[in-house]
Structures are given as structure tokens and as C-alpha cells.
Design a binder for these strands. Structure first.
Lengths: 151, 151
DNA sequence: ATAATAAAAGAGTTTTTTATCTTTTATTAT
DNA sequence: ATAATAAAAGATAAAAAACTCTTTTATTAT
């Protein structure tokens, strides 16, 4: 009945993160990366990914250039963006605010039964996505100890 | 564009958790709780909630009785169920398995750049949802220090 | 100038999730 | 037996998310 698959981030957001890491890796070599290459490199549907890239570009998380030799690229300041910045751009900041049980009223003064326990978990999750910048990803991937594999 | 709201669990799952806590509270007094009361008490759409209750019932997380004085209720063994059991029944166990970045290949041997950091967070999340049984919820709510409020 | 390239924008479709409505089945009380 | 009650089941509708296709705009190289 409910055969859904529920992950931490939306599909769009997962694609966005993967694309950003992918372009970040290429950007070291002053390369511009086309949407086809991004889609292929991240195992994402091309046209859907194009929409996501437009969104990221509109929100100034990445640069783009039209025409021949065009594509997406990052400058030094773009590489300072973290997963948190990408998540906020695509999925919004509900991960920062919402109660796990979806209660409208859940706060320090009116805590749901798991409020304080979840607060800790959320704190660590936020710390993780904020600390992991694209530059940090580049280093990790370059070390050869971490991978971005789909097959 | 992507104005979506992304929470940890699906809407169905949130409703399920709230309903289970709601019935658990009432079950102490040997009461049976009707679907209308559950929907009202949890701020959920009645017919949608009915479907979810059917599902929980089919999966043996709760008992039900048809006819007059019928409704949903829990026995002592039902009260031993945790949020984790509810989540597994409704959203499945992807929260236990999946990579945050949605990578098909992400393991101890082929870790994504956030694999180990996320593993810790996931461990704590799982610990929390497994430790929080319905019986534990009852105690917390009875203490008067925790609430399940929507307005 | 013009043709080629590649992103941006617009306009869909499909699938999944959420929600509603109706009919059936089981149980109880009269 | 029968009427009333309440969950189970079935069928459908609406909304959101995921995905696709086509046209437009900007840029570059000839």
C-alpha cells in the first residue's frame, strides 16, 4: 500500500548536491561543464537536472555561461558553499525548524515527547551539512578514500 | 519553484505516529477509540486517517473491533511498539539503509564523502526512535512536561 | 551577418502522495 | 431477525513531485 521511499532530502535536492559536487570537482581545472555531462556523471535525467541547475544558478550557487564552450562552473567563492546552502535553496529550511512529529505547536515551552532528543540529532545533522563545503568535498574525493559512485 | 516541505517522515507516517500515541493514551482506560475521535484528536483528515489505521491494523501494530462500541485499541504488547516500528510499517526501512546523497553504491568500503559522519547521526536517530515506545510516550505525557498540541 | 552551441524559459506529461467518497462486512443490542 | 454501528475495502479525485519535450535567448566562432 504505502510503498514509498522516504529519504532525508528530496530527489531534486539529492540531484542538486551531486551535481554541485560534480561541477566542483571539474571546476578545479577551469573547466565548464555542460548539462549532458552533469546528468551523465550524476545518473540523473538530463532535462530534470537542467531545471535544477537553472534553479541553482538563479539562486547564485553556481555560475553559468551560454553558447559554445559554455556550461556551468564555480569560482572560489562558490566552492565555499556547503550542503546546507544547497538544501536550503532546494528543499527550504524546514529541516531547521519542523517538529519530527509534524506538530504545529512544538517548542522549548511546549515540547513534544521527542523534542529534546530530536533537537540533539538535528543539531548534529545541521552541523554536518554546514561543515561540509564543496571545497571540503574536493579534498575528500581527491584523497581517494571517498567516492561518488552509482554503479 | 521548489517550494516543497520536506520533513523526516512522510505525512502518512506522521499521522500514524500521532494516532498511535493518541490511542495509546486512551487505551490505558480500556477504551476503544473511533476513527472520528482519532482524526479530530490528531488534526488529520478522517478518511485518510482511516486508511492509515487499516494499514496499522493489518500490520498488527494495533487492534480493532467492528460494530457498536467498536474502535481501535491496544493491549499491553501493542504498547511495547516503538516509533521505529511505526516508521518501518508505513515508510519502510530506507531510513536504516539509504545513503543521504542517494547513491546506490555507498558502503564502508565505498563510502561517500559524508558516509561516516552521517552514520553517526543515523545511529542516534535510530536509537531514539527505537527507544521511544508507546508506553514511554504515555509516561512522558502523563508527567505533564510534554505535549501533543496542534493549536 | 550567420550558423552552431548551450543555457534559460515555457509548457507539458507521468507518477506518487495525499485526500475523499461510497459500498461492504462484521458485530452488537434490541 | 433486524436495525444500528463502526471498521474494512474499493474506487476515485486532487495536489505535489518527478520527469520530458519544445521554443527562446545569449554567446561564440566562422
Amino acid at each position: 500500500m504505502f510503498q514509498q521511499i522516504k529519504t532525508m532530502f528530496s530527489k531534486s535536492c539529492e540531484y542538486a548536491i551531486k551535481a554541485m559536487i560534480f561541477v566542483a570537482q571539474k571546476s578545479k581545472e577551469e573547466q565548464r561543464v555542460g548539462i549532458k555531462e552533469i546528468a551523465k556523471g550524476t545518473d540523473a535525467p538530463e532535462h530534470f537536472m537542467a531545471k535544477i541547475m537553472q534553479d541553482l544558478s538563479r539562486r547564485k550557487l553556481i555560475h553559468s555561461a551560454k553558447g559554445p564552450n559554455g556550461g556551468f562552473y564555480m569560482d572560489a567563492s562558490d566552492l565555499k558553499n556547503s550542503i546546507a546552502d544547497i538544501v536550503k535553496a532546494i528543499d527550504g529550511d524546514t529541516i531547521y525548524k519542523d517538529c519530527v512529529l509534524g506538530l504545529k505547536v512544538c517548542s522549548e515551552k511546549n515540547p513534544c515527547p521527542v523534542h529534546f532528543e530530536f533537537k540533539e540529532i538535528k543539531k548534529n545533522l545541521i552541523k554536518m551539512i554546514e561543515n561540509n563545503t564543496l571545497a571540503a568535498f574536493n579534498e575528500k574525493l581527491d584523497s581517494g578514500k571517498f567516492f561518488l559512485r552509482n554503479k
